[in-house]
Design a binder for these strands. Structure first.
Lengths: 340, 340
DNA sequence: CTGAAAGCGCTAACAC
DNA sequence: GTGTTAGCGCTTTCAG
């Protein structure tokens, strides 16, 4: 009894392989492989015997070996800014992947360029069938050789810099236009914009679109457009500038979710009085007082389109590169319809 | 020219292998492997030559082949209810995995028992080093053979039924107690509970804990405890019962985030008057009016502990099974301190 | 319909 | 220090 103790408390007892199953069932390896892959050209009595052996031994085919041999992984990667945060695009990717019989390997870049690089290279080493990336940073030329080697890659939300790949993103300019015109229709003439840094692609596009709106209506651009870092201080300062300047704004467009939240936190109870339209929908937007009017991206469609583009690229590596722009829509809840 | 067109538009041009690198550098395969794995016993001039060849060919070692050969994957799986939603535990798992040099494969069970089963089996086939699961459903006996085969497995948030594995979860009873006593300290005697179905583990634990609180204070349990499905209708009915009955409650404890949100949506503007303490923190809880007082789970610690337990299990498969109960804490923001 | 044998790309004994 | 060789577990020509 005393000797047995150490004996069976061993590290993972090796799993059975196809050879073991073949021996157990008294057939050739090849036949087991056929049964595992549902090849119909196997006699029913063999099938039964082999399935029994598989169950008896609790055999699970080693996916890595199959992948190595067949060359495909049936797995796609998604390098997004955050898994584990509200991310309907990622949810849509996961759904689309599942429906297509693909495994999804999702990783967070955490807004870190170096980390994005590491994740992408790691995914290359894992020989994934393709990758969807929500790009961070400005320099993606290191992907050039991978693309040349045939890596199927799709950019989501932002284009990749320096390389030409399939891309899906929202119609930022149209969204800003919708927000601006909504507020104009509600009587506002001094409409301010606070948004993300112009070093970020979407921050650049949205700020530019907002300036274009102002110009088109003959409004002075000068003190109404405030792109920059999303910090409590910077957003607070921008808010002070637009609300307490000599010619205060009467309404506000916020350029993304983080800006919206920073503004609401800064305003506190005052938020009930300032007309706001936010870019990006916000979780619990309906529970705020007033409920938040937003320009919502069609994130579900963005994610689904990303997978579609990726599948098409995998199927036909030489097809022409495509950029899909997904429309945005407005969700009216109250904050954008306040009378100032 | 016309012939060339179809020629180089081929499917993924095969990637170079170690053999190619060895040929390019004029050395043996083994030496390339050594350099790739940073083996110090290689002459510096060889290292340089091989690294140059790797760069020239854009060689990336095939991770699958390495895994097949070495038997380890340096990858752990996480089967959680939802990725792509706010999930601090998953974020913590990802962080801990990264810091430990592990790749994380995260999948959503979507609250679907069948899907959980499929994901777990698929992870077994991929020969992951271990799995963290946030269990759904009641029957996990199908994991028995996998565990017997040495699969390292950790349950998070809820225990697995029928099998004995390492588990990490919150102190549900203590959390309910904190909420209850907080409201009592604010003068309430008729405190109601609305929460999840008692078929769900945490729903069961929390409802039981609430009943125990009532009993301990000599309050009648009868009409104050409302576990059940989280739907607008059911929660609405429960709310009506506790607020508009003959002896209405003056304060409410909600059993999880979804219940809290359903209650707030149902109450609408009335929410400003009903003292509420919610179990689970809620995104944007600070922006609600009143801001929401909650019993917050230490999700970051739960995730980190799950990875810790898993690593320990991988390192020492025979160690005794452990259950870690993580303390909860209260975040006071306003809703729980209302005078009714 | 079934069986023997080669090989996917890599690592690890073991000689040199 | 470096090279040769076997083999991880599977799929897949090719004969029977």
């Amino acid at each position: 009894m005393s000797a047995a103790q150490g004996g069976n408390a061993r590290a993972r007892s090796k799993r059975p392989t196809m050879v073991d199953v073949a021996r157990e069932a008294g057939v050739a390896l090849r036949t087991v492989s056929r049964v595992v892959n549902n090849d119909p050209t196997v006699g029913p009595e063999y099938v039964a015997r082999i399935k029994a052996a598989i169950k008896a031994l609790n055999f699970r085919p080693d996916e890595r070996a199959r992948q190595l041999r067949t060359g495909v992984s049936d797995t796609i990667g998604a390098a997004v800014r955050r898994i584990a945060e509200v991310n309907p695009a990622l949810a849509a990717i996961e759904r689309a992947a599942r429906e297509g019989g693909l495994t999804l390997l999702a990783s967070s870049t955490d807004f870190d360029e170096q980390r994005e690089h590491d994740i992408l290279i790691s995914m290359c080493r894992q020989r994934l069938d393709g990758i969807i990336v929500e790009p961070i940073g400005e320099s993606h030329s290191y992907l050039e050789p991978e693309l040349a080697a045939g890596l199927p890659l799709v950019a989501m939300d932002r284009p990749l810099s320096g390389v030409s790949v399939d891309t899906v993103m929202s119609d930022n300019a149209a969204g800003i236009g919708m927000a601006f015109h909504h507020l104009r229709r509600h009587g506002h003439r001094r409409i301010a914009y606070i948004g993300d840094d112009e070093r970020v692609f979407s921050g650049r596009e949205r700020a530019a679109a907002f300036r274009a709106c102002l110009l088109a209506h003959g409004e002075p651009v000068g003190d109404l457009v405030h792109p920059g870092e999303i910090t409590a201080e910077r957003v607070g300062a921008a808010l002070d500038a637009v609300l307490h300047g000599p010619d205060p704004a009467t309404a506000l467009v916020t350029g993304n979710m983080d800006t919206t939240l920073a503004v609401l936190r800064r305003l506190g109870p005052e938020a009930t009085r300032l007309p706001i339209v936010g870019f990006d929908d916000v979780p619990l937007a309906d529970l705020l007082r007033p409920a938040l009017t937003v320009v919502a991206q069609d994130t579900a469609r963005i994610g689904a389109t990303a997978v579609e583009l990726l599948r098409a690229r995998i199927a036909e590596p030489a097809r022409p590169v495509k950029t899909v722009v997904v429309p945005v829509s407005m969700t009216i809840r109250g904050s954008g319809e306040l009378r100032s």
